[in-house]
Design a protein around this nucleic acid. Sequence first.
RNA 1: GUGGUUGUAGCUCAGUUGGUUAGAGCGCCAGAUUGUGGCUCUGGAGGUCGCCGGUUCGACCCCGGUCUUCCACCCCA
Length: 457
Amino acid sequence: MSSKPSIPKGTRDFTPGEMLRRNFIFDTIRRVFNLYGYLPIETPAMENLTTLLGKYGEEGDKLLFRILNSGDFLSGVDRLSLGSMEPNKLSLQMCEKGLRYDLTVPFARFVVQHRDEISFPFRRYQIQPVWRADRPQKGRYREFYQCDVDVVGSDSLLNEFELVQIITHVFNLLKVNVTIKINNRKILSGIAEIVGEKDKITDITVAIDKLDKIGEEGVIRELTERGIPESAISRLNPIINLRGTTAEKLETLSQVLSASADGMKGVAEMRELFGYIENQSFTSSVELDLTLARGLNYYTGAIFEVKANDVSIGSICGGGRYDNLTGIFGLEGVSGVGVSFGADRIYDVMLQLNLFPEETATGTKALVVNFGGEELSVLLRLTESLRNAGVSAEIYPDVAKLKKQFSYADARKIPYVILAGSEEVKNGQATVKDMHTGNQQTFSLDEIPSAIRDKKI
RNA sequence: GUGGUUGUAGCUCAGUUGGUUAGAGCGCCAGAUUGUGGCUCUGGAGGUCGCCGGUUCGACCCCGGUCUUCCACCCCA
């Protein structure tokens, strides 16, 4: 009994048509990263579980794919744990490896491990898949690509500014309209400090994060449910209702947060960053958004999030500054900042908006018809001469009916078909057919490559 | 992880209160057309109706389980 083959939940195959478009995104992003002087690295798909665990919060630990030890995975399990039926305890004894959950933590590990070979500030990019045991939805996959750019070993806010430039640059080239939202973790903790609930910063920010979705009343309800007293909630009011220009928002904040050293530092950082931004003309809108509360587990300064203006799909790029990520791995005092582009979501956005350029639809430019027989060696040389001239070319492998060979060219959207039968070959010629117009013209064999390359037909 | 939703030909979908042989369009293959694709016409192949079990004389249809899809929550790219 054979059942239909399938792939795991939340994973996907990519067809050639999809890959050509995906590569357009990856190539664009990679080109921009190179342009700003970042260097590529790669890290393994699997990391030691100890590297991964505890870095993404409780939720993140649950979403980690764990890899069963090879061989006798029960050998390290003691009888007591086996009987306890506690999945967490057991998996720690049976799994020492896990699939990477993002590229930032492996990068932090990389920096610590290679600290002697790295010159700081270290600017790297990394384009690789990550895995999360999340429940899939649209725009949410269990295997997806992240395109990370980070710089570590520099506290300068010019790095934050440069990331905003990179984000704008990439989405300009991809022709996706976006809004870049920026917040600062220090401002958020200042807010928590001012309302007197410093240890509840996560609860407060997670609730405020939902302002867009559930409105002011919903936020207040959520805060109450999370055990924030009414008096503290009322002090959050000016922050929830913060309006106006970035400068006005920062002015209000500096008054509200004046008693919090941390908060004031955050305000100062944002003033500096927006100072750089406002001196340049940006095509994307960049806004200070206090309701942005992402990645609180390790971000310490700026937080970024990018949303597509014309498609509702969640964030397509996000990141921030992390002062002490390498500290966990034993290297203190190295600050980093970076963002991650979600290629799969960018793909979904571009597909929906029909933003992929036409030329990403095809590979081969010329198909040489295979007549077989004596002429074959001439045709093979002709095919090779096309390639040498920079024209993607292929020869039909079988001596099939012309109808079949032409249909193939049609289905593959190959723009030119080259015919060289015994008559043409005898005269040192070949006929080129433009599949779009239907015109055909005969050239000498030497002229064929340049005729196609320079569109002489 | 919680609640819901989806699954029929390669693709998009019909399918009557449970009743003989499960259909259409598109695509595919062949021919009309022995060196010319798209348009037209003719013919053809292709399904254990997601999978497993149950109810029934009888199940694509009803019930249970499972996998998958999508949605909301949680969280996130």
